[in-house]
Design a protein around this nucleic acid. Structure first.
Lengths: 111, 111
DNA sequence: GCCTACATATAGACACTCTACATATAGACG
DNA sequence: CGTCTATATGTAGAGTGTCTATATGTAGGC
């Protein structure tokens, strides 16, 4: 998967995996990998800054927890984040439709 | 259309509009706008450097022409460009399938 | 002690799109 | 003649966000 292709879609992916339940960063990376059938291997250097950014702009909130001696920062969607996710979904449908439409090979004129 | 979303897909779009016939930069911009139903307004500062890059790596070739007193640089796909376009198409299908799959809202468990 | 898995984080490299600007011809309009 | 719009190409520099590489630390297997 070409890294640049992810640009501008990372937020949507992160919000989507947090839709059902709050998760911490490491678990989010695993969830993305699982839900993509192994196609998405997003490095920590991408995910952690992105989560902080999403929190800063109000789409996520976070809290620390300690589980099995390890510290986790668990993120959850805010109301704003849920609305944003809906926006990301419709933006994705539009985007996929536009790009797909331009890329679709046209049947050569029969005449 | 969020500019960042185009990242990594520009090459595919440019190769696709050049598949049927050679075009010059300005015409490529118009073709993208037309074929996307007006959704894609790609600025010249994006298209011209991208075309030069694609030529540099061998996917396009170009030649100058003068039409109606105006100079045009007309680009056409090379064999390498055609192969690249096929690669871009399958990469897009994969990408759209993966992102779409992760974004798709899951039905909540019925139990 | 060493290795792997778990867990978070930052600095800087990198690549590409975008904004803004520069240049130039043709033709319409007054 | 001057101005405006459409046509046509191009570059410099800003901006942004992903990636690579690195740092830190715990837990558990061998």
């Amino acid at each position: 998967m070409n890294p640049d292709a992810l640009r501008g879609h990372m937020d949507a992916l992160l919000l989507a995996v947090l839709e059902r339940e709050p998760l911490h960063g490491y678990a989010i990376i695993e969830a993305l990998q699982e839900r993509s059938g192994g196609a998405l291997s997003v490095p920590t250097g991408t995910v952690y800054p992105a989560l902080r950014r999403l929190e800063r702009i109000g789409h996520l909130s976070s809290e620390w927890a300690t589980v099995g001696g390890r510290k986790r920062r668990t993120y959850r969607l805010t109301d704003s984040g849920r609305r944003q996710l809906e926006g990301e979904r419709s933006a994705w449908r539009e985007f996929a439709s536009v790009i797909g439409g331009v890329l679709r090979p046209e049947a050569p004129p029969s005449g």
